[in-house]
Amino acid sequence: MANTAVRVRLTRGASEGDVAALKAWLERERKLEALRSSGELEIQERAGTQDGQGQARPMGAGLDIMLVLIGAAAPKLFDEVYEQVKSGVRAWRENRRDVENGEPPEVEVAPDGDGR
């Protein structure tokens, strides 16, 4: 099955505010915003109950950001969206480091074939 979603998971002390801020940042990324406007991409917050190894997640924000590609073109767009998300996350972490004290949370970006 082709990947149709990108999962963004904040770890190590991430707050709900961090999740909301990163989601808003990604929504403003030019290419992602264009795909959202055309209905080809949805950006959602979802409860994250497991860590990357399938283990129950310890206390924390407990939310993942899912970028779900919609429609027949989804597999063709996946690599472009995946790279844009990784770039956006790097930019968000740099910006957060500049505007807030302390290190930003670690962020995992991974393909997810189960977008819905």
Rank of each mutant, 00 (worst) to 15 (best):
T4V: 14
R7N: 09
V8A: 04
R9S: 15
L10W: 00
R12D: 15
G13K: 08
S15A: 03
S15Q: 04
E16Y: 07
E16N: 11
A21H: 05
L22C: 06
W25F: 11
R30D: 12
L32W: 01
L32R: 07
E33A: 15
A34V: 08
S38L: 05
E40M: 13
L41C: 07
I43Q: 02
I43E: 02
Q44N: 11
Q44K: 12
R46K: 11
G48A: 15
D51N: 14
D51G: 11
D51K: 01
G52M: 08
Q53V: 11
A56K: 03
R57W: 01
G60W: 01
I65G: 06
I65R: 00
M66T: 05
V68S: 06
G71D: 05
A73Q: 15
P75Q: 04
P75K: 08
P75G: 03
F78G: 04
F78C: 07
F78L: 09
D79C: 00
E80T: 13
V85N: 05
A91T: 09
R93F: 00
R96A: 12
R96N: 08
R96S: 10
R97V: 04
R97K: 13
P105C: 10
P105F: 08
V107H: 00
A110E: 11
P111H: 09
D112I: 03
G115Y: 06
R116I: 10
